[in-house]
């Protein structure tokens, strides 16, 4: 009799000390909050994605024509039509997706491409917008959307002074980062103290231009294919 009682008490004590009895509140709350957050995300996710897309889209004229003439053109009612689309690239079995904005002037002439690309930086992923001429031979502009590089050093990549080096650069021999003053036309000055951040941006640019050239050059001149 006492033995069974002892056994029962022992069982109850063990249950009291088990992980499940200790942590059930955490588990229930985690499931409950997880469900609630999933519902929030399902409702707000598309709105947030649209916000991000619109932010990139609003930058397109500036990236293709430069800040001033971009604004001028918009004032004169020569706003461009910007069509977002997704380009799929098959790289040795790995599929990569690029968000590409195809811009054309009001009269139907192609204005160029703006693509949203990203890659590993020094601290975290760097996301940027890259403006290209219709034939993808020249870069028309660069804008950093998102970065978490070292404040004071690497995050200088967002400054126009550094970004403007990319303007009018030819894309054919890939760009190169140099530390001692750019001399050749395909060289980019590194940000002082942030060679890795600078190199990351240049690598992202080179890689995405190479990828997009394969895909977009096969597309007939923009404006006709839609």
């Amino acid at each position: 009799m006492t033995q069974t009682q002892n056994g029962k008490a022992e069982k109850a004590r063990r249950f009291q000390n088990s992980h499940l009895a200790q942590a059930w509140l955490c588990i229930v709350l985690a499931l409950f909050f997880g469900g609630a957050l999933a519902a929030v995300e399902a409702n707000l996710g598309p709105i947030i994605a649209a916000n991000k897309l619109n932010e990139s889209k609003a930058r397109v004229p500036e990236l293709l024509l430069g800040a001033e003439s971009g604004a001028q053109k918009a004032d004169q009612g020569q706003a461009m039509t910007v069509t977002p689309r997704t380009v799929e690239i098959d790289k040795k079995g790995i599929k990569k997706f690029y968000t590409v904005f195809e811009a054309s002037y009001a009269d139907g002439r192609p204005a160029g491409w703006v693509t949203k690309v990203g890659g590993q930086g020094y601290a975290d992923r760097i996301e940027l917008l890259l403006g290209l001429t219709p034939d993808l031979e020249r870069i028309t502009g660069l804008f950093i959307l998102d970065q978490k590089e070292t404040p004071g050093l690497g995050n200088k990549i967002v400054e126009p002074k550094w970004r403007d080096q990319f303007k009018q650069k030819a894309t054919h021999p890939g760009l190169k980062v140099v530390k001692t003053g750019a001399q050749n036309s395909n060289e980019i000055d590194a940000v002082t103290g942030a060679t890795i951040s600078s190199r990351s941006v240049v690598n992202i640019v080179n890689e995405s231009v190479a990828d997009l050239k394969k895909k977009l050059s096969t597309v007939p001149e923009s404006g006709k294919d839609k």
Binding site: L25, L29, F33, V40, I48
Partner: peptide
């Protein structure tokens, strides 16, 4: 742990709401 879980859930909602 429970406090942090609760706070994190509400913070995430606030963050998503602001982003939207």
């Amino acid at each position: 742990v429970v406090f942090t879980l609760t706070i994190a859930a509400f913070v995430t909602i606030a963050d998503r709401f602001l982003a939207a």
